[in-house]
Structure formats: C-alpha cells, structure tokens
Amino acid sequence: MAKSKPRIKLPAKAAKGEIIQIKTLISHKMESGQRKDKKTGEKIPRQIINKFVCTFKGKEVFSADWHGAISANPYMSFYTVATESGAYEFTWTDDDGSVYSKSAKIAVS
C-alpha cells in the first residue's frame, strides 16, 4: 500500500493572495472495522488513514481527521491562499503508524 503514490493537483503558478484549490487522492482500502470476514464471521479490524495534514513552510494550512466512514482511496480537496513560492507538504497517517507523504511546488508572483 505504501508503494502507491498519492496524487496531488494544485496550480503550478499563482498570483500572491490568490485562493487556490488543492485536490488529493491516495490509494488505501480504508477498512472500516465494520465488515465481517465472510469465511470466519469475525469482524475485520479497522485499518484506515486517520489523519491528513497539509503544511506550507512548517505551518499547517489544513488538516482533516478521518473516521471509518471515509471511502476507500480517499479524496480530499480544500483551499488555501497562495502567499509565496515554496512547497506544500502532505502527510497521511495510517492506523498502523505508517506515514505516507508527498510534496508539491508552487511558484507565486
């Protein structure tokens, strides 16, 4: 699962003060903890990404707490004000402690 890279869309360039949209996708089964194993009848333990964070130059711009109701291969979109050139850092934290991350650059003029 960690092998699969997240997918991020944000504009390559923006004007200072412009509100930009960021779209993200990541491959994850988001096992809700509600399903039962068809063979054994036992509940399949929850394994989801429970936290998504976007930072810019060390400062949080947006974050989300996800629960078992978030669909598989989670999508998250949000907005931010472009202030200066740099890279947005994205992290997804799994119930098992794994952290998936990616960054995306923007040029602001």
Binding site: S32, V61, F62, D65, G68, A69, I70, Y79
Partner: peptide, 25 residues
Amino acid sequence: NPVPNVASFHFTPASGKAVAATRMR
C-alpha cells in the same frame, strides 16, 4: 452509520475559504 463520526476538517485563516470535499460511506 454504526459509527456516526465521518470527518473533521480543520481550517486556518490561510485557508482563504472554508470549503472542503471528500467521499464517505
């Protein structure tokens, strides 16, 4: 839903606008 919590979105003034989208079960 069996667990009613879906998600919490945390915004900051740097968000520009308080709009967020995702997909849920």
